[in-house]
Design a protein around this nucleic acid. Structure first.
Lengths: 245, 245
DNA sequence: GCATAAAATGAATGCATGTCCATAAATTTG
DNA sequence: CAAATTTATGGACATGCATTCATTTTATGC
């Protein structure tokens, strides 16, 4: 009838009928799961941001990468912007999820908590070529899109509080004057150092070294809290008891 | 003849004839200086990035803000991309120009140099709502545009070297073991702290305090070099002679 | 004050974009 | 197995985009 009857051709050429078994590896099989399509679109969005940049990430780019049709974006998201926000949100969730996992298997001393956060934040899983591009792409657009801004901060109140409590305990044990002020500054400074290392990774990717970044942070911390840190991290926690009691 | 004869209408309504004296303040007068038009386009580009974001910065946005016609962009720049690169370059030049000025009027002791850089980098002139949006917008696009990447780093080799030499002198005066290594780490750490404070300003603009940011950096530095820094900066340089001789 | 060059204009072009929607296939339900 | 529902498609549309260029205005040289 109309020129659209080649839908079925396309389907026959490129897709198979069942979710379970796919044959022609050319394209992905039909999915028939809205959750999976949503995830595919989000992943394709992030892929596009990584490979061609935020401003070249169009709906066409996204659906091509996801091997889906144009309409899908507006079937699962209100509009392109909502998809971008969902992608930002997804990235933030992955970041916190991964860090939380790592914290669960870590020790509970303040030094070990801090070491886990620092090494985790600088580790391959959270800081790599893909994630750094995504984070900075979103941050670059954050001020023009409030919803994205909400998810473009990796250092939220929960994490900040965790770090502060750890430093507060250490500062108290070290019997410093104004331990709370010291802990507050140490928290702010450590987060700034981590952010700075991320920026360094973005801008000087070739010369960046995770080991150096960690050593530098621990050097600053061991200068502030000599009895609790050394250049290799929170080794004081392992070698000697450090709580004041 | 053709519909274009209303050029003169537009001119008569909105412009005046002389470069020297403008009368109707409605629009800018004709300029007749290519340099000035270039600058206007660059400034308009930066304005647009600040106000509507990088991905909404179109040629139309730019020429409207500059009160120039569409064709001007391609008269003075090869294309839109070249204009964006020129804008990034301009921003970098302003950053270094301002910092260099401040360094010229500063003292020459290593502490004073470091204090000048730190306070300058965190000062209103270099770090404000406009500049932070511009820097992060460019950084967000940097990985998709090599030419922009070139100008999106505020911490280049010259500045890094200046900081390193200052720390090396301090470390030597303090007779530390491995003074060069310490100086290298202090340089990297200080730059990371500054970058982190910029990120903090971007993401938590409301709660950001320049004084706190500076105090935190000096707290870290005074822990590393207790004889040369205190919480207010490099006051050791003013109160007591600090060179080892 | 005329000729020439420089500066500036904005309509026109073609292409890419985000969104919509009529259609169709796959799956589930009754 | 038919009806209803869910999942998926891609052509069509209006809009906006970067870019081009014939034309006009202003400035400069002679």
């Amino acid at each position: 009838m109309d020129g659209r009857s080649d839908h079925s051709n396309y389907r026959a050429d490129n897709k198979v009928n069942s979710t379970q078994n796919l044959q022609s590896g050319d394209r992905q099989p039909r999915r028939y799961s809205s959750e999976e399509s949503r995830r595919l679109l989000i992943e394709a969005t992030l892929d596009s941001i990584v490979e061609v940049g935020f401003s070249s990430t169009s709906v066409s780019e996204i659906v091509t990468r996801a091997n889906l049709s144009r309409g899908m974006v507006h079937l699962y998201f209100d509009n392109k912007d909502a998809l971008l926000v969902a992608a930002a949100r997804h990235s933030a969730e992955v970041y916190y999820g991964t860090l939380s996992e790592q914290l669960e298997t870590a020790g509970s001393s303040p030094q070990e908590i801090l070491e886990t956060i620092i090494l985790g934040d600088l580790g391959e899983e959270l800081l790599n070529e893909r994630t750094i591009k995504i984070w900075f792409a979103f941050r670059g657009e954050a001020h023009a899109n409030g919803a994205i801004a909400q998810y473009s901060d990796t250092r939220d109140d929960y994490l900040r509080d965790l770090i502060f409590k750890a430093f507060a305990e250490i500062a108290a044990a070290q019997k410093m004057s104004e331990p709370e002020k010291v802990a507050r500054d140490a928290t702010h400074g450590t987060l700034a150092l981590l952010e700075g290392m991320w920026t360094d990774y973005l801008l000087h990717h070739d010369s960046f070294s995770r080991a150096s970044a960690a050593r530098i942070i621990f050097r600053f911390l061991s200068a502030l809290f000599p009895r609790h840190f050394n250049l290799d991290g929170a080794s004081a926690a392992k070698n000697q008891p450090c709580t004041s009691s």
